[in-house]
């Protein structure tokens, strides 16, 4: 009976196809889970390895106020990192916020200047830190004659984090409801007052998140600082002194290769700082989303 044989064959083929698709599905699912697992394992391994190797070597002399080849203290580098953060932010935050206010509050869509600013800010985001370093060396260190210094380093970093601050502030300002603006204008206050009294305070958590992102980049940066701030391991007495941040300190230590244990310990301190920064930004992000 050819009729039922055909039917049987069809049935078998369908069954096989179903099984095959179940197997493919299983493989695909496995791949996805494996990728996620790999990411987690890599993260835990890197963090765990550094912590296990580094924590036993954290000692009091690592935090001596001055650096010498006996104690390999990271204290000056830590202080320098703080100075670098403060100075870079002092330059970058006002400019970034000002630029974002201009883009969001003062210009309409389709403005030529606005699109040029956007384009250049995007370009700045993509430029590698070593190119910033070379530019800083050519412009701030040599052309302006600031030599290898805290000031040259922080100006270089300020340009580097400018797009970050700008973008986050822009997003934060855009998220402020128009009713705020209308309410403020309706009560008779001008644009300037609206910006400073209403919009910026409302956008503050978002701006803060951007600032923290910027701090993270400053802490992690080394290539841009090597040829702009140099690598002197002491606390500067003026902004024209050469300084070494913690990341640069760690690079110098690991390329000297003499104090492997201390390098691990320094890596632990760097990781802890990064962890603190991330936690802080997570807390702020939660506040932003909750409103």
């Amino acid at each position: 009976m050819p009729h039922s044989l055909d039917a049987l064959e069809r049935q078998l083929r369908a069954q096989r196809a179903r099984r095959r698709s179940r197997v493919t599905g299983l493989i695909l699912r496995l791949l996805v889970y494996l990728a996620a697992l790999t990411t987690i394992v890599v993260l835990l391994f890197i963090i765990g390895y550094i912590l296990v190797k580094g924590i036993p070597h954290i000692s009091a002399d690592l935090f001596d106020p001055t650096y010498n080849s006996q104690n390999v203290s990271l204290m000056p580098a830590l202080v320098n990192t703080l100075l670098m953060i403060v100075l870079s932010l002092a330059i970058s935050v006002p400019l970034g916020i000002g630029a974002a206010v201009y883009l969001v509050e003062y210009t309409g869509r389709g403005n030529k200047l606005v699109s040029l600013v956007r384009l250049t800010a995007e370009t700045l985001t993509g430029i590698p830190s070593i190119v910033y370093g070379l530019f800083g060396m050519l412009f701030f260190v040599t052309a302006l004659g600031w030599r290898l210094s805290l000031l040259a380093g922080s100006f270089t970093l300020a340009i580097m984090i400018l797009p970050v601050i700008m973008r986050t502030t822009e997003e934060a300002l855009k998220a402020v409801p128009d009713t705020y603006r209308e309410g403020s204008f309706g009560l008779g206050s001008g644009r300037l007052r609206t910006v400073f009294r209403i919009l910026l305070p409302a956008a503050m958590p978002g701006i803060l998140a951007g600032v923290i992102l910027g701090i993270g980049r400053i802490v992690g940066e080394s290539a841009a600082l090597l040829f702009t701030a140099g690598s002197v391991a002491s606390i500067p007495t003026s902004v024209f002194d050469s300084t070494r941040t913690l990341s640069v300190h760690m690079y110098v230590l690991s390329s000297e290769g003499l104090y492997i244990d201390k390098t691990y310990a320094t890596a632990v301190v760097l990781l802890v700082i990064v962890l603190l920064i991330n936690t802080l930004s997570a807390i702020i992000a939660r506040r932003v989303t909750k409103g």
Binding site: A36, T39, I40, V42, L43, I46, I47, Y49, I50, K53, G216, V219, G220, E221, S222, A223, S247, M250, Y251, S254, I260, T263, A267, L270, L271, V274, L275, I277, N278, S281, A282
Partner: peptide
């Protein structure tokens, strides 16, 4: 649970990655 971990991975300074590569 995973997102903060991935953010941490993004935040680790490149010298630490380099050092990890060097010793592991």
């Amino acid at each position: 649970l995973m997102l903060p971990g991935i953010e941490l991975l993004a935040g680790i300074p490149s010298v630490v990655y380099g050092f990890f590569g060097l010793v592991v």
